[in-house]
Nucleic acid binder design. Sequence first.
DNA 1: TGGTATTGTCATCTA
DNA 2: AATAGATGACAATAC
Length: 628
Amino acid sequence: MKSLKPWWSDGGSLLHLTILLSLAELRLDLDLDLYLLFPPRTLLGDELLLQNGQTSHIFAHRPFPASGGSGRAELLHPKCWGRDPAAPPEGLLLREVRALGVPFIPSTRVDAWLVHSVATGDADGAHALLGAAAASSAGGVGSGVDGVSQAAPGGGGGPRAVQSSPLAAGEEEKAPAEPTAQVSDAGGLASERYQNGTDAFFSLEDLFQLLSSQPENLFEGIPLGDIAPLPASINDGMNSPTHYNVNFSQAISQDVSLHEAMLLCSDNTFRRDPVARTSQPQEQILQLSSITNTEQTLPGTNLTAFLPFVDNQMRYLSQDHLYDLDINIFDDTNLMSLATGGFDPMEVSWLLEEPGYDSGLSLDSSNNSTSVIKSNSSHSICEGATGSSSDFSHQDLEGAVGGDYPEPSKLCHMNDRSAFHFHSDLAFQHVSHNHTYHLQSSALESTSDSFSWPGKSQKISRYLNDTDRNLSRDERRAKALHIPFSVDEIIRMPVDSFNSMLSRHYLTDLQVSLIRDIRRRGKNKVAAQNCRKRKLDVILNLEDDVCSLQAKKETLKREQSQCHKAINIMKQKLHHLYHDVFSRLRDDQGRPVSPNQYALQCTHDGSVVIVPKELMIPGQKKENQKGK
DNA sequence: TGGTATTGTCATCTA
DNA sequence: AATAGATGACAATAC
């Protein structure tokens, strides 16, 4: 391996894997591809828990038409698995996929670790793993499938329990001159082991062991040409030893990007038709579309499936088709929609042009348009194969957000990765190459120029299906950008988790911008709701206070009235008492005392004396007058 | 068709 | 200085 660097770095630069005549690297590449052969029935956006606690998401999912609904799922990015070589991901998909009831689960730890090692540029770790695996295979040390997770990654010990594989010693002892038979037998055993109804998958361990056990024989014995007829059907490929077309000389002589390996080849691997290989690119793609729908496809059991990027298809997939790894998904959304005939630019641009939207989706048009144009050229296959735009447009909106995921069979997504693979969809069998590129620019103009449309809501609603109509604007945007988190999750996530999530996942600038806007708007929405709630509470409390104060006022008024009444009664009583006292008073001559001339006055010792009014203190006079 | 309530969003302020 | 939350103001929408 001559060069290895993270292929997500440098804004989409590719990791070119110059494949040498090295079996280890061959195995490595095989594992890379195999890793993509996830079991079916996973849905786009499925969050996969890794044993190391990290998560990843299925970002692409392509069904195998001939396998009765089975398919492959691809993780969002190896970057999601963490970058610490000391803590390789474990348990990849194991519990989840088993919970889904799929018949086969690829090896967990080693495969993830291999991809992880390659993706992170840790070639030594990957090679050490491979070497350890080979040594383990030769030494016959292993503990079964579960032993995979027990092995120490990074070359410490044999990470793969090769001996426990159903392809154990018997396969290793096969004649070196019959490598293809080994492959076939391996596939047969594997299918025998894993076959379950229409779903059968080749075990990574089986393949790994096969390659590890007799590398020289395998490598040298594989003919350069087609050595055997294609299997007549999937079942043939599954249940009987079958020869496959494996051209290793071509495989090891090409500079292939990891992106190609991961994103392009997995589907292409199932094309075995030599005629199709020699066809023109577009024709090949079309043939590929149809081939994948026929019994010629053999999911998981054909060795060619493990050598996708060594297939001749890579020849016509020029770098123009691949060169922008950093193409953001939204660009792909535009592309796929725009590239299809009869597309209405509004169908895409409304996602960006809804009023008040400033998340940068539209404003970042310079970078956006660039990537779109790039992806435009790189998506000629997809554009030509799409044919119909409406279905795509709606399916595109059904992303990972909100937990409302489309069925795998519908998952022909807009991103550049899956766009290369959607030939597996039956809908693309009878499509023509309609390169309506002009629509793209018009859409871009519309997305970048206008921010308000008259009657836009009605127009927008026309493009929303029932599901999307129930989604919020941010949810639709998030779907359009294939953001692998729910809006609720983005909003409610703690700050630390949010920041770590942004750093852990491979997200384009647009995605990050949208996520931050979603979070900001969501937080502010909640804050506004709380604010209004508080304001309403304050108003209600004030109203309650007014009511209580009014009631208290009434009570005080009643008490005052009662006091006045009591006072008047007391005055009346005092008046009567006063006159009663004077009526009984007599002076020393026996004459009645006139209350007009005298007054009753209380002394400090409590006694009552009769005082002439002219001798009274003025204040006492007033009191006596009041009492009268 | 106008009024009103609700809600989302942005700008700005505040802690 | 940066940031999250609070809040006023405005617009869109539904009734």
